[in-house]
Design a protein around this nucleic acid. Structure first.
Length: 490
RNA sequence: GUCUCCUUCGUCUAGUGGUUAGGACACCGGGUUUUCAUCCCGGCAACAGGGGUUCGACUCCCCUAGGAGAUGCCA
């Protein structure tokens, strides 16, 4: 049997972790089984529709490198792949269900439904449609339609019996029909289908073999089963993957932190890190391996390695993965990745000058193993491009050192730095070591005031390399500046 | 409230009747180092509880508890 799966997002918000993981699982499942991966846009909610969300969908998929075999842009034999372009299909199918006695017209206005719900709430009854229009006389229905009274089409859900279906991950799931949402809407009054109708009709017409999606959809499966049955269709295989949660165990949402792929991208996460990490929430390969390229996942992904339990999204582990992937980049690649951030933060001219690019070349090896996210770059190397606007006195004078000795250290350091160009880095380091020893200090303590003078911070990339990139002249000037400040303070 | 699903270290997970319950992140120590980071070494830490089944249960069954999701003319 040929495998056809789909990712069917609704363009109502930015692509987020949960959705993309579903997309990834579908994509990997298709690739690993030589099947087809289809992208279908479920744009049937015209109130929440957003063009930005649609653009974001394509951008995100492109950035992650997930391509689809059928769908927007690439076409396919089962199009169109935007549900908004298939309205006639849904209407025809909805009407067919009415003819078969499996669905009915409902003329209840939204106000009535609202009132109904409020009453049910007050009386603590279970909430749901009271099937008011389910058995309207045929003449009344025809009359109301002729009068063009707004209406929807509802599914006639059996009142008795139970619905059973099989989930590849969860096994057999049973539900009493009386516990089902009562007679859900299939076709809205604006002529658009609801998710229930559209998804069933399209999955069938598009030959979808497996529905792979998050467990939040589980409760609506019995409804779908009834729709398939009403049409006389065979349902596809279901596989409901566990959801992605926030630290508090609730469904991951904005209040947990960044959730949209766009945000992660802007913060400087690498697509390979994101893909690798997301894939491991709810899925594993074995007891130890955890580094996977997208290409490897396209080969190795299997449904039977899915976990049933929901997984908490761990931002820290993502950071760790990202750091690992940054370190795997060669200098040229990392340079290209980091340049946009330097530009955006105004550290470079646009376009960058020859001199600036040389500094960037030189600093890449200095920052590579310090970066967790690309966006951290500017804070790390700012001192190479702009003057330091303010020194904190506590930083300049190390603990257990007074202003006088600090000035002495800075003067000795300045002397050595003036001679830097004459020696190699190794020789310079040796000279510094000797000088520190001579003054009875540890190398680290000796270098600290100099580090602060040069970089403006006690935390910085390696000093000698930094000084080389900054240039002796500027370095000496900064040290002299700090010495003056200290003298005044004494 | 009702229905459905879920339950191994703080987190992601391995484990499919017999293991000192393994790995990774985080955390805590230690080492390397020029600060930070990287890197290396070590440590902490789990089978939700109760009943069965069995010679033997993390593994199978039942119950309880806890968590989550769904209960829309949103998907």
């Amino acid at each position: 049997m040929s495998i056809r799966v789909r990712y069917a997002p609704s363009p109502t918000g930015l692509q987020h972790i949960g959705g993309v993981r579903t997309a990834l699982f579908n994509y990997f499942f298709a690739r690993a089984n030589k099947g087809k991966f289809i992208l279908r846009v479920e744009d049937t909610d015209r109130a929440r529709y957003s063009k930005e969300a649609l653009d974001d969908l394509f951008e995100t998929m492109h950035w992650l490198g997930i391509s689809w075999d059928e769908g927007p842009g690439v076409g396919g034999d089962y199009g169109p792949y935007f549900q908004s372009q298939r309205l006639h299909v849904y209407r025809e199918h909805a009407e067919k269900l009415i003819q078969r006695g499996e669905a009915y017209y409902c003329f209840c206005p939204p106000e009535r439904l609202k009132r109904l719900r409020e009453e049910q709430q007050k009386k603590k009854e279970s909430i749901g449609y009271d099937r008011f229009c389910r058995d309207l006389p045929q003449e009344e229905v025809s009359r109301k339609i002729k009068e063009q009274i707004p209406h929807v089409i509802r599914l006639k859900v059996p009142l008795e019996g139970e619905t059973l279906f099989y989930d590849k991950l969860l096994g057999e799931i049973k539900k009493k029909n009386r516990d089902l949402p009562s007679d859900p809407v299939l076709l809205k009054s604006d002529g658009y289908p609801t998710y229930h109708l559209a998804n069933v009709v399209d999955d069938h017409l598009m030959g979808i073999s497996h529905i792979l999606r998050a467990q939040e959809w589980l409760p609506s499966v019995p409804i779908h089963i009834h729709i398939y049955r009403a049409f006389g269709w065979e349902p596809p295989f279901f596989c409901h993957v566990p959801m992605v949660m926030g630290k508090d165990g609730q469904k991951l949402s904005k209040r947990h932190g960044s959730t949209s792929i766009r945000e992660f991208r802007e913060q400087g996460y690498l697509p390979e890190a994101l893909i690798n990490y997301i894939s491991l929430v709810g899925w594993s390969y074995d007891d130890s391996r955890e580094f996977f390229s997208k290409e490897e996942l396209e080969r190795l992904f299997t449904l039977d390695r899915l976990n049933k339990a929901p997984g908490v999204f761990d931002y820290k582990k993502l950071d760790w993965f990202n750091g690992q992937y940054i370190r795997m980049k060669d200098d040229e690649e990392l340079k290209a990745l980091v340049l946009p951030y330097l530009l955006k933060d105004g550290l470079l001219s646009n376009p960058p000058t020859e001199r600036e690019l040389k500094i960037v070349d030189g600093m890449i090896p200095l920052v590579k193993e310090r970066l967790k996210k690309l966006s951290e770059i500017s804070g790390m190397v700012k001192f190479l491009f702009v003057e330091i606007d303010q020194y904190s006195k506590e930083d300049i004078i190390p603990k257990k050192m007074n202003a006088e000795t600090t000035i002495r250290v800075l003067k000795e350091g300045r002397k050595l730095i003036e001679e830097f160009p004459k020696h190699t880095d190794e020789e310079n380091e040796e000279l510094i070591r000797r000088k520190a020893e001579e003054m009875g200090m540890k190398v680290g303590s000796f270098m600290m005031p100099i580090r602060v003078a040069i970089t403006g911070s006690t935390v910085s990339p390696p000093l000698l390399g930094s000084i080389r990139l900054l240039g002796t002249e500027k370095a000496v000037k900064r040290i002299s500046g700090v010495i003056e400040v200290l003298k005044k303070a004494v």
